[in-house]
């Protein structure tokens, strides 16, 4: 009986430490985010979406706290409905809206990361579960896996450069699970093509969008018109 109590006490202590450690990591990331009121940067977007062929494109991104975000570019592009670049920062800011816990440790690109799970406290939240891989040594979000009610799971992988002090990535790769895009031959009048084999029609595949940022400009207090102008 004593042994059992001892084990339970150790587990509880570990749990409390994990909670505290996750809060420390999040606090450090929020401290870096807090240094940024707004930013803009050049962006080079590459798309690898099943059933969609499109060339890379250049544009400019604009962000203003708390969550105003826009990509300005001439042309058509695809973005996840819940843009992680817009949401991840603000998701962690309100520390009262979620509980966090470290569920394990993993090594990503040679960095030891804590896997921090974020569980919303309210029932009305769009978020179901957020998993953040946070570098232990220099707290930065290296990878995320956000599961929401309406838009499934979106994964991001971040690479940091000179803007790591603001927790702003140099490259972000967004990975989403989706079904391959397909249209009927009748609708497209595409007589020369053979229909795709049925086996592949319902398979889920991974779509990737990678965004490489350059020439970051922090806290320049740019006009709000950047979010609305044509």
């Amino acid at each position: 009986m004593r042994k059992l109590l001892f084990v339970i006490l150790i587990l509880l202590a570990q749990h409390a430490m994990a909670v505290d450690d996750s809060k420390l990591l999040i606090r450090e990331i929020n401290r870096k985010f807090a240094l940024v009121a707004d930013y803009n940067a050049n962006v080079d977007m590459k798309f690898d979406i099943p059933g969609v062929k499109m060339n890379s494109m250049k544009g400019k991104i604009f962000f203003k706290k708390p969550d105003r975000f826009r990509i300005r570019t001439k042309g058509i592009y695809f973005m996840p409905k819940q843009n992680p670049m817009q949401q991840i920062g603000s998701m962690l800011l309100d520390t009262n809206s979620y509980t966090s816990i470290i569920s394990g440790y993993e090594t990503l690109d040679g960095r030891e990361c804590a896997v921090v799970n974020i569980i919303p406290t309210g029932n009305q939240s769009e978020l179901i579960l957020g998993k953040f891989w946070i570098d232990k040594k220099n707290p930065l979000i290296m990878k995320t896996q956000i599961t929401t009610r309406n838009n499934g799971t979106i994964e991001t992988q971040n690479v940091y450069g000179s803007m790591a002090k603001y927790a702003l990535p140099e490259k972000i790769t967004i990975v989403v699970e989706m079904k391959r895009f397909k249209m009927s031959k009748m609708m497209t009048a595409d007589l020369n093509k053979k229909s795709a084999p049925k086996k592949t029609e319902n398979q889920t595949e991974k779509g990737r969008i990678s965004m490489t940022m350059s020439n970051y400009k922090i806290n320049t207090k740019f006009s709000d018109a950047e979010f609305t102008a044509e």
Partner: peptide, 17 residues
């Protein structure tokens, strides 16, 4: 004017303007 979303039976091709 703008980019063309070309509809094919095996997917979409986006041709830049």
């Amino acid at each position: 004017e703008g980019d063309l979303v070309a509809l094919n039976s095996d997917g979409l091709t986006i041709i830049r303007a």
